[in-house]
């Protein structure tokens, strides 16, 4: 008997048609209620699994990091003193800035609004570099907007449904954002680096760069507000012969453990 007349093929074809139908419905935007059911139904098990795994991971990571804690504490204390000194200067500058704004009649505008979201799943099968959020178009979330956690950009919305959305992790090789060095204002581009971190690229060879400088969004893309933190400059990885300067960008956010995030709505 030919394969296409077998029961196996009939069931396979039926399943294929069902999936294609669902895909068409998703493209048309008619699949939101079904999406909700599929996303929400494993949540109780997911919560239980996380509740068990988190303390276990915390216990082991504390043991592994015990040796580093002392040196890290000393380094952080020094950093706090230096930042406190800087803060005094910034306070003075802020007062001056406020006074000048008043004199010139500048209007203060809020740079962006934030939509709080819960991360429903995060790169759960190790292949998509994406995470699913429980907020979507009905909360004002749209494709291209930046996702923030602990004040740092962690991703970008790539799909927005009615009540859920998908964001691309900033560490994904497909992630690209316009950036600038907050110290000099030099423009560059930040890209993800195959899940391992972020890379600052396309910085002119004439521009200065130093370890520890803050990297923020440049505001060239209208969907991502200016001034969102991307990370700190790590090591410069380009040579003087290269066309552009290239450096690693260190973000303090643990990209593998995102629970609550904000979507920055311009």
């Amino acid at each position: 008997m030919r394969f296409i007349y077998t029961k196996t093929f009939a069931i396979f074809a039926g399943c294929l048609v069902a999936v294609c139908l669902l895909a068409v419905m998703q493209v048309k935007g008619w699949l939101d209620p079904i999406t909700e059911i599929f996303i929400q139904s494993p949540r109780p098990v997911e919560f239980a699994a996380r509740a068990v795994a988190r303390p276990v991971q915390g216990f082991f990571s504390t043991i592994f990091e015990l040796r580093k804690i002392d040196s890290e504490n000393t380094r952080l204390e020094q950093e706090v003193y230096s930042l406190q000194q800087q803060l005094v200067g910034y306070d003075q500058l802020r007062r001056e800035n406020d006074a000048l704004r008043k004199e010139l009649g500048f209007v203060n505008t809020s740079p962006f609004a934030l939509a709080p979201c819960t991360v429903l799943s995060e790169n759960s099968f190790g292949v998509t570099d994406a995470f699913v959020l429980n907020c979507g178009g009905s909360q004002g979330v749209a494709v291209g907007q930046a996702v923030i956690s602990e004040g740092y950009v962690v991703g970008k919305i790539i799909y927005a449904g009615k009540n859920s959305s998908t964001a691309l992790l900033a560490t994904s090789s497909k992630f690209v954002a316009d950036a600038e060095l907050s110290k000099t204002g030099a423009d560059a581009i930040v890209t993800g680096s195959f899940g391992s971190g972020l890379i600052l690229d396309h910085l002119s060879q004439n521009d200065d760069i130093e370890k520890g400088w803050l990297v923020t969004t440049a505001g060239i893309n209208s969907q991502i507000p200016k001034g969102l933190l991307l990370g700190q400059v790590g090591d410069v990885i380009s040579s003087p012969n290269d066309l552009f300067k290239k450096a690693t960008v260190v973000s303090p956010v643990d990209f593998n453990n995102l629970d609550f995030v904000f979507v920055a709505k311009p």
Binding site: E46, A49, A53, S124, N256
Partner: peptide, 11 residues
């Protein structure tokens, strides 16, 4: 699925 999604960040 819940196990996969819940444990993924830790495994």
């Amino acid at each position: 699925c819940g196990l996969n999604v819940g444990l993924a960040p830790y495994l």
